[in-house]
Design a protein around this nucleic acid. Structure first.
Length: 977
RNA sequence: GCUCGAGUGGUGGAAUUGGUAGACACGUUGGACUUAAAAUCCAAUGGACAUUAGUCCGUGCGGGUUCAAGUCCCGCCUCGAGUACCA
């Protein structure tokens, strides 16, 4: 009987689905284990072989934990709101829900074929109203909360109102907007309802604020930095400007310190933690207030080097800074405005990345130094970003390289305030190696003391205070898109009001067009039934808006990260209609034990999710302040693109055709073509040809030896210009009737549809089976590294599975022949070596090495002609997390009637591995010269003695006396001399 | 620019704590079986010289520490990821 993987895999996939083998129970006596994958966005292109990499790893771990006796939660779902479906809708008019549904179905089909042990009864989709009902619900919770710094947690807004009523806001220690006015209890009571709401909005954890965005007037939309190339939109090449817009924001900055501190609680990769740490960007320093000469206004700056305050020779404001317009003198106005217009065209990333081009403009205004009272010119420069700190810096050219470059460029003086330091070529940024000079009361002080002293003096003057600053900005939560969660918000007199949770979900309305409206409103502005009737508590036609009982609804939608910031908790109780999840469910599952996903989510999804988790924790909804204990980043699988090289030859007049030149001909196109010219039909015609060019060939047309299937390529409608092309092969011959072969060029690139290098898992499952695919993806290399995909090697793991199958089927014509024979010592040694290694590998997420271990094990058992059940049954169990279909089949054939999924994992016993001798490498001056078999229990001295009397040792030494002999028992002997 | 990661045979990679570099596969070459093909099995396979039993070189580049460095330290080079509205 041969290994019929197609039949076997279909059989067990059906079995698992019918028996709900992987359904996780919320009430179980078993210990829980929660294994989670970052859920995918269901794109139109379907899954490629890169997607399942992490899923296979987590599936192996989940299956392993089931064998270890855990109640495993291993769910899957879809992050199904997103731009591509909307873009497709704009182009085709197809509703994004339809596209999304179709894409999800395709994903599901592909996932099912790989044999994952997902509990599909728990699937979630962020675009499902039953799901986003709870996204809207959390938004309302955030709106109704404020951050109390005294208790260091989020609290209900009612507790803030109670304080306001009692004593105003003077003693409130909250995270709030910068410009909150002080009021008393009496003031509060005298405020109108609208005024009170305006005040509260300055404290709420989600609030309306003016934020800078990349606005593309032609597309009527906001663009990501990603979508802007050289200052114009990637699509269409339209100009993009920076613009302020009122949008919903999330006060994530309230959690900055806790997000930083709690990183110590989680076992996540250090680089990921580093990038969150940098993103949060905590810095200690001082906020200093500079008066503007001859005006009312002050400029606040944040600096980490207040000790260098006497080195200030100018100030720089971000071009967007609100004071710029006010303080610019009439003489400078033209220049300043021109400069602002120019910087508005640059993206933030361009401004940060480009340190070589120094630009700026003088405002004509001067600030006053807090101590020396000297006049300091105020400049604007785009190296200062509006969103960071206060959007203004005190420029100390002698101590900061960017300030230094700016000063040099504009001929601004560079006073030196460091003792004994040369600043003629560059700034001196080292804090420790000098002391302060030319600085009045700071003279002679080292960095730390100077900082303390200057803060003390600033506070005395009332012009500064010690401060901790975070780079982390409040997160913009509005998107001018259609395909996202609608806000449960309506507006009364311009003030936002929440719709009561019992009326959720507020379902996305139908629109005719998915584009922004003529007047520049978001796509929901096209909806005709999009108003809130407070009496009926339902969404009604816009025509009924009277601003008395019917009000306009919010037109923005939520960003992609909204739905993905709590889905891991929702999986615990996904079909609950009364609560986001029951307390029973969350108290049983607690948190994610293992989370696998790409490192590209380090500062987006993973930071926002931690923020929401902490908020839910503060409000008592979840028991843990961190949602995932352990996290692994899987690496990207890159594609191996194939290139066809060609020139275009032109004849006498309009005649032209393509000549494709095989790999070895690239270097000598001229010669190849010369040779080819001597053959008919073009023998004597004069022609010229273009420079050598290349084009991606679909990888399906190339075999594992890089040979191109010329006929398929020729007849692909994508390549009609090659229909009559001449192909010149490796030997320089024109290819006809297999006389020569065409070899393509190869290059590793990101796997993408546009590069024609996408390899689809379906075809691999069809040809080699899911078990082969699973093993091969793991065999490719370490999970966390990125690596190129090359299908060629898959035959290796496939023949391993066949070999293992034969181990169980050694009888006539492949009959099943597992016997009750007692295993030999060799059999047991091989088995237990394998158990030990595989167990260690799984715990260390080193899946590639366990596949190699299986191969060694099967090779050894085959050589030993082992067919003992006591060896082969544990082997089936060991392999089962990796290749579950074949394992189930063998398990079944061994006489079991229930699934292998929860059978206990084989137990390692060290006694079978005890060795009586060790082969020592004997090296001389670090170079291994020969090997010597010695009893394993010899002492250091005995080993040395045995080595020294050996003939080969004497031969190597040639009479020299060794200076030193290093013996590491069990490892190596090194003789020096 | 900044932050982080990675560079080992023709290819993917192994070497868990500084201790035999190249496990396990792919590919290639030669052989067995076969009318032939597929499948399967056996052998060789880092490079150079010696063709023997040996010698030298070799983990991106240049230094260093050590009896011993792919592994640790310093300085570079190349590639990849993230950089706040792609998901």
């Amino acid at each position: 009987m041969t290994y019929d993987f197609r039949k076997i895999e279909e059989k067990w996939q059906k079995f698992w689905a019918e028996n709900q083998t992987f359904k996780a129970e919320n009430d179980s006596q078993k210990e829980k284990f929660y294994v989670l994958d970052m859920f995918p966005y269901p794109s139109g292109a379907g899954l490629h072989v890169g997607h399942p990499l992490g899923y296979i790893a987590s599936d192996i771990y989940a299956r392993y934990k089931r064998h270890k006796g855990f109640n495993v939660l291993h769910p899957m779902g879809y992050d199904s709101f997103g731009l591509p479906a909307e873009q497709y809708a704009i182009q085709t008019g197809q509703h994004p829900a339809i596209t999304t549904e179709a894409n999800i179905n395709r994903y599901r089909e592909q996932l099912d074929k790989i044999g994952f042990s997902f509990d599909w009864s728990r699937e979630v989709r962020t675009s499902d109203p039953n799901y986003y009902k709870w996204t809207q619900w959390i938004f309302i919770q955030l709106f109704n909360s404020w951050y109390n710094k005294d208790n260091d947690k989020a609290e209900d807004i009612s507790s803030l109102i109670a304080i306001f009523e009692k004593e105003g806001n003077q003693s409130v220690n909250a995270v709030c907007d910068e410009d909150v006015a002080i009021f008393s209890a009496a003031d509060w009571k005298a405020f109108t309802t609208k005024e009170q709401q305006e005040v509260l909005l300055q404290y709420r954890l989600t609030f309306l604020a003016e934020t800078e965005v990349n606005w593309c007037p032609a597309l009527g939309t906001v663009l990501a930095n990603d979508e802007i190339v050289n200052g114009v939109s990637e699509r269409g090449g339209h100009p993009v400007i920076r613009k302020k817009m009122t949008q919903w924001s999330m006060r994530i900055s309230a959690y900055a310190q806790r997000l930083l501190d709690d990183l110590t609680m989680v076992d996540w990769p250090q680089p990921l933690k580093d990038s969150q740490t940098n993103w949060i960007g905590r810095s200690e320093g001082a906020e200093v207030t500079f008066r503007v000469k001859g005006r009312e206004e002050n400029i606040d700056v944040f600096t980490t080097r207040p000790d260098t305050i006497f080195g200030v020779s100018f100030m720089t404001l971000a071009p967007e800074h609100e004071l710029v317009a006010k303080i610019t003198t009439s003489e400078q106005r033209e220049e300043v405005e021109a400069y602002i217009a120019a910087t508005a065209k640059r993206s933030e990333r361009d401004r940060m990345a480009d340190v070589k081009t120094i630009t700026g403009a003088f405002t004509g205004a001067y600030a006053e130094h807090p101590f020396s009272k000297k006049a300091i010119p105020i400049w604007i420069g785009d190296y200062v970003l509006a969103g960071y700190g206060t959007g203004a810096v005190m420029s100390v050219p002698c101590g900061d390289q960017r300030d230094y470059d700016f000063a040099k460029h504009f001929n601004i003086p560079i006073p030196n305030i460091f003792e004994g330091v040369d600043i003629s070529v560059e700034a001196f940024a080292d804090k420790e190696k000098t002391s302060i000079a030319n600085s009045d009361f700071l003279n002679g002080l080292p960095y730390k003391k100077a900082v303390k002293r200057v803060i003390f003096e600033l506070e005395k003057l009332g012009q500064g205070i010690g401060k901790i600053n975070y780079r982390l900005r409040d997160a913009v939560f509005s998107r001018q898109r259609y395909w996202g969660e609608p806000f449960p918000v309506y507006y009364v007199d311009g003030m936002p009001h929440m719709i009561s949770p019992e009326h959720l979900p507020i379902v996305l309305p139908e629109v005719e067009k998915y584009l922004p409206t003529e007047t520049g409103e978001p796509p929901l502005g096209n909806a005709t039934v999009w108003a809130w009737d407070v009496k009926k508590s339902e969404v009604v036609s816009n025509q009924l808006i009277d601003n008395e009982t019917v009000f306009p609804l919010e037109l923005n939608t939520m960003p992609g990260w909204a739905g993905s910031s709590y889905y891991f908790n929702r999986y615990m109780d996904p079909n609950n209609n009364q609560e986001v999840f029951s307390q029973d469910a969350i108290n049983y599952w607690q948190d994610v034990d293992l989370y696998i996903g790409g490192s590209e989510h380090a500062t987006g999804h993973l930071l926002y999710s931690r923020f929401w988790q902490k908020f839910l924790f503060d409000k008592g909804f979840v028991p843990k302040p961190e949602f995932a204990k352990k996290l692994i980043n899987q690496g990207m699988i890159t594609g191996t693109s194939a290139f066809v090289y060609f020139v275009v030859a032109r004849f006498a007049k309009d005649k032209q055709f393509y000549i494709a030149v095989s790999k070895s001909g690239w270097g000598s196109v001229d010669e190849v073509i010369k040779k080819w010219r001597n053959t008919p039909p073009v023998k004597d015609e004069a022609f010229r040809y273009s420079v050598l060019n290349r084009i991606h060939s679909p990888v399906e047309y190339v075999n594992s030896s890089d040979e191109l299937d010329i006929e398929s390529f020729r007849h692909d409608p994508m390549y009609s210009e090659f229909r009559d092309a001449v192909f010149i092969g490796e030997k320089g011959e024109v290819i006809k009737e297999n006389n020569d072969i065409y070899i393509v060029g190869r290059e590793v690139e990101k796997m993408s549809k546009s590069k024609y290098n996408v390899v689809n898992p379906d075809s691999i499952c069809q040809e080699y089976g899911a078990d082969s695919l699973r093993l091969y993806e793991m065999f490719l290399g370490p999970l966390e590294q990125s690596k190129p995909w090359n299908t060629a090697g898959i035959t290796g793991v496939h023949s391993f599975l066949k070999k293992m199958w034969r181990l169980f089927h050694g009888g006539n014509e492949g009959a099943f022949t597992v016997t009750d024979a007692e295993p030999t010592a060799d059999n047991l040694k091989t088995l237990h070596k394998t158990i030990k290694k595989v167990e260690e590998d799984i715990e260390n997420f080193s899946f590639n090495t366990s596949v190699a271990t299986f191969m060694i094990c099967v090779n050894e058992l085959a050589a030993q002609k082992c067919n003992s059940k006591k060896i082969l049954e544990p082997l089936a169990l060991l392999v089962s997390p990796y290749a579950p279909h074949i394992a189930e089949e063998l398990w079944n054939k061994l006489g079991h009637t229930t699934s292998i999924a929860t059978a206990p994992f084989p137990k390692f016993e060290g006694k079978y591995l005890v060795e009586s001798s060790k082969e020592y490498p004997i090296s001389f001056n670090g170079k291994v010269r020969f090997k010597l078999e010695l009893p394993a229990d010899l002492s250091k001295e005995e080993i040395e003695a045995a080595v020294m009397i050996h003939d080969k040792t004497q031969e190597q030494l040639q009479g020299r006396a060794p200076k030193k002999v290093i013996v590491v028992p069990g490892k190596i002997v090194n003789i020096v001399g």
